[in-house]
């Protein structure tokens, strides 16, 4: 399945420009959408999920024109969506919640619905606690219920918005592995501001800032954009001054080791370092701010 986005714009109340001419081509597999808070990621996700109407531009999802009301309804049949703030009905158990959402997704046959719910509870490792009320679940468990509900209709398009926010490291790793497993034969769109989540799951990504796409391509392309721009320097304590962004500060026995991003080495004894995705993202955002 292909998603084609052309010059997509979204304005709230005719005033706030949330998306400014976003164009992307997204194919099957995991695709990351990275950007700072307020970049327009959630707006883009909501438009793709058929919640919001775009103000302008074209959007085709698997051959469906998703800018029309009929198209949005058609997309909802092939969609699984995990919102950033997934609320639950606290008095329902996970099994009941999934059964309820399955009904609203059109899974009317009781036996088939119960089988699907049971399978997904097993997939997200919640079978043992499936009949406990959701009010007793931890944040990570609720996220797993969230991904289970998104998969109820075996969607061809899975959109997950900030799925690992607020999870502890172990839950985050578990969730990332689950998402990677799901990416095989469907489009999985992962929106996040956590660079590590993208680094561990996606081969292709787009970076959004202020409602615009400032990068789209492979992970390697983004990483190589910061080649020769990342430096390691050790000082007796003073931070490197000048036109640099400090990525990391590590205390040593006799000073501090700094990892910085900048055009030129911050000191004569600075050594170049191989960039990782976080360095490249900072380099990209820095360029956006200073207009490099």
């Amino acid at each position: 399945m292909e998603i084609s986005i052309r010059d997509l714009t979204k304005t709230y109340n005719g005033k706030v420009l949330a998306l400014r001419g976003v164009s992307l081509e997204i194919g099957t597999g995991m695709y990351g959408l990275l950007g700072p808070n307020g970049a327009g990621k959630t707006t883009l996700m909501r438009i793709l999920a058929g919640i919001l109407r775009p103000t302008g531009g074209a959007l085709m999802i698997g051959g469906i024109d998703a800018t029309t009301e009929r198209g949005r309804t058609a997309v909802k049949r092939i969609l699984g969506y995990l919102p950033q703030d997934l609320g639950v009905y606290p008095d329902l158990s996970a099994r009941e919640f999934l059964d309820y959402i399955a009904l609203l997704k059109g899974l009317d046959a009781k036996r088939e619905r119960q089988r699907r719910v049971g399978d997904l509870l097993t997939l997200v490792s919640l079978s043992d606690v499936a009949d406990r009320k959701l009010r007793t679940y931890s944040g990570g468990m609720k996220r797993r219920v969230g991904i289970a509900q998104a998969l109820l209709n075996d969607p061809r398009l899975l959109i997950v918005d900030e799925p690992t926010a607020g999870l502890d490291p172990e839950e985050r790793i578990r969730f990332r592995n689950l998402l990677t497993d799901l990416g095989g034969d469907r489009v999985v769109l992962l929106s996040t501001h956590i660079v590590e989540d993208i680094a561990q799951t996606c081969q292709r990504l787009a970076v959004l800032a202020a409602g615009q796409v400032i990068f789209h391509g492979g992970l390697g392309e983004l990483v190589s954009a910061a080649n020769g721009k990342v430096w390691q320097v050790t000082t007796n304590g003073a931070k490197p001054t000048g036109d640099y962004t400090v990525i990391a500060t590590q205390p040593l026995a006799d000073g501090f080791s700094y990892r910085v991003v900048g055009v030129a080495p911050p000191a004569a004894d600075a050594t170049p370092a191989a960039p990782n995705l976080e360095d490249s993202y900072v380099w990209l955002m820095r360029g956006q701010r200073v207009g490099v």
Binding site: L86, G87, V88, L103
Partner: peptide
């Protein structure tokens, strides 16, 4: 106060009907 409102809006059965 529907905590599941956003999810409802992505479902094939319309939220207004629900």
């Amino acid at each position: 106060a529907d905590p599941v409102c956003e999810l409802h809006l992505t479902l094939p059965r319309a939220y207004r009907a629900t």
